[in-house]
Design a protein around this nucleic acid. Structure first.
Length: 573
RNA sequence: CGGAGCGUAGCGCAGUCUGGUAGCGCACUACACUGGGGGUGUAGGGGUCGUGGGUUCAAAUCCCGCCGUUCCGACCA
């Protein structure tokens, strides 16, 4: 490709509304442009990268035995009503009506459509298992689109759906997809980890997420330092601590004026946060009177409530909701900040660690007062003791080996064992060996293709710009002439090299604009992140040399003109 | 949805407090010089100051409404 015939839309300055590095660099390198919040156009350069990611995903999916299909973005409401998600999904699902007033939605995912398709096409156990995938545009009206294509409203996803006669068969395909995902992210060249995950709103039984490790990630990923255990913090179990061997002191009420937060109380009383107990008031499930009762959650002051774990408790509303300050003060007669677990009139659910605490500080249920050296006398105080906190660095690993560490991750893939949730609801059945009708067992497998592009940049950049992994670079090599318009020797050599590289299967961006200056071309090549660059100038040519530099190299080197093609080709293998 | 900020040329910003002819840098056009890391000069083009209303002799500037957008928190590829 020649830059004289190609849109290189690089920006010298960083657009003000981009905060994360991948978003900034994608705008600056001229890969994407924003149309509206969470909606992006892909420019030629960005699209080349996107297509390369797609190609790797497609190749590995095909290799796994999955079959490619393409389903519509626009989906009829009836299917979603049939699965129950028309009500369940909330306002992230964009709904609209056509000219006949029929209801439709923009597909945020395709379980309904694929299940509808397959229930009429597959009728026998003999046709199973089968796995279908597509690479297609999804629309989710995100609460808060951000970070460019990392969390866009419209995005490209690879979604696959497998169908089986038994759960055992599903597990086999699940394992194949797990392997396939590892191959995909390896080929792309990412530093990633598969981790145990929550199933979220998609539903189902078992699940793994694939995370690209990067500080800008939105998820906390938990690792054992002694085994390959890895889990999303939503899932990682916090074990009960060993019992503290400490003499229980007599509790007393102390005045703690204007100390509402744990931090304020700790400073005021000079106690560490792990010696405190906090009491959170949340809403329970709707009772027979149609009301949501208040329920108290008790955690150690230094621990964070894990809302995913909590909302799985049957007594609690799902998703978890905190009680309003008004309800707390009217029903408990107290402002937030001084509530404690003793003499509360509402049910209490205690975290395992909180239930094991001794000689702790907690709210006294009196304004401006806390209890100090408080102790649990009787476990019957609690309606339940459960794991409802986030693990913290240094916790023992739930796998039994080692301690936990926490890193940030960007979720680029997610695989689920769906089971029969959709096939039951939508009557997707086959006849088994006995001629009996049976709901198909399903799995589903997603990759955020456009997000992978951003994640790759988060992991591979420097102060000059992007450093593409070779497999997804928009071009392999930048061919940069010096004084192209003046030097016949430079022009001739560049043309010859351009042909030779192309013939060797190397994708060249030939910066052939007559008046372009060297500094600008070098800066662009670095910003765009092209892995290899060759500079051709008269001075080198007098010795029969051109200048080579890899994007991540610190120094360039002189290479003979007739060796450069085979050298770069070797680098790429 | 709650909290905060921003909206002036394609991009980055100043001007707003204290009302008085709309500016700067980059980019763009033309010409000349320059030519191994975003060069220099000369001459240019480009603006409903987000939008609607109000106050005023006069509004980018003050007041009210609306819209857009970004960031921080609860959702997800």
């Amino acid at each position: 490709m020649r830059t004289s015939q190609y849109l290189i839309a690089t920006l010298k300055e960083t657009p003000a509304d981009a905060s994360v590095i991948s978003h900034q660099l994608m705008l600056r390198a001229g890969m994407i442009r924003k149309l509206a919040s969470g909606l992006y156009s892909w420019l030629p350069l960005g699209l080349r990268v996107l297509r390369k990611v797609e190609a790797i995903v497609r190749a590995e999916m095909n290799k796994s035995g999955a079959q490619e299909v393409l389903m519509p973005v626009v989906q009829p409401a009836e299917l979603w009503q049939e699965s129950g998600r028309w009500e369940e999904f909330g306002s992230e699902l964009t709904r609209f009506q056509d000219r006949h007033n029929n209801a439709f939605c923009l597909g945020p995912t395709h379980e309904e459509v694929i299940t509808d398709l397959i229930r009429s096409e597959i009728n026998s156990y003999k046709q199973l298992p089968a796995n279908f995938y597509q690479i297609q545009t999804k629309f989710r009206d995100e609460v808060r689109p951000r970070f460019g294509v990392m969390r866009a409203r419209e995005f490209i996803m690879k979604d696959a759906y497998s169908f089986h006669g038994s759960h055992a068969c599903l597990l086999k395909t699940y394992e194949v997809m797990h392997q396939t995902y590892c191959s995909i992210f390896q080929r792309i060249g990412l530093n990633f980890r598969p981790v145990l995950a929550d199933t979220g709103s998609i539903g189902g039984t078992g699940s793994h997420e694939f995370h690209v490790l990067a500080d800008s990630g939105e998820d906390d990923i938990v690792f054992s330092n002694a085994s390959d255990y890895a889990a999303n913090i939503e899932m990682a179990e916090a074990l009960a601590p060993s019992v503290v061997q400490e003499e229980k002191r007599a509790g007393r009420t102390v005045a703690t004026p204007a100390t509402k937060t744990i931090e304020e109380v700790c400073n005021y009383l000079n106690v560490p946060a792990h010696q405190t107990i906090k009491t959170l008031i949340v809403l329970g499930t709707v009772d027979e009177n149609g009301k949501q009762p208040l329920i108290a959650l008790v955690l150690r002051g230094d621990h964070q409530l894990n809302e995913v774990k909590a909302s799985k408790l049957t007594q609690l509303a799902s998703p978890l909701a905190f009680a309003s300050d008004q309800r707390i003060s009217s029903e408990l007669g107290l402002p937030v900040g001084y509530i404690g677990p003793f003499n509360l009139t509402i049910p209490i659910i205690a975290d395992r660690a909180a239930a094991a605490a001794v000689n702790f500080v907690c709210g006294a249920n009196i304004v401006d007062h806390h209890l100090q050296d408080a102790n649990w006398h009787d476990a019957s105080l609690f309606a339940q003791i459960a794991d409802i906190r986030n693990v913290v660095k240094g916790d023992p690993s739930p796998c039994g080996q080692g301690q936990l560490d926490i890193k940030r991750g960007i979720e680029v893939g997610h695989i689920f064992q769906l089971g029969t949730k959709y096939s039951e609801a939508m009557k997707a059945r086959v006849l088994d060996e006995q001629g009996k009708e049976q709901a198909m067992v399903m799995g589903c497998y997603g990759i955020g293709v456009s997000r992978v592009v951003a994640a790759a940049i988060e992991q591979n950049h420097d102060d000059k710009g992007i450093i593409w992994p070779s497999a997804i670079a928009p071009f392999h090599l930048a061919l940069i002439p010096i004084n192209l318009h003046k030097s016949p020797a430079v022009a001739e050599t560049c043309e010859k090299l351009y042909q030779a590289f192309s013939t060797a299967g190397i994708e060249v961006l030939f910066m052939d604009e007559a008046k372009a200056r060297l500094g600008g071309m070098l800066a662009d090549a670095e910003l765009i992140g092209i892995p290899h660059r060759v500079v051709v100038g008269d001075r080198g040519l007098e010795q029969g040399m051109v200048e080579y530099k890899g994007r991540a190299d610190s120094e360039s080197s002189n290479i003979a003109v007739d060796e450069i093609v085979s050298m770069v080709k070797n680098f790429m293998n």
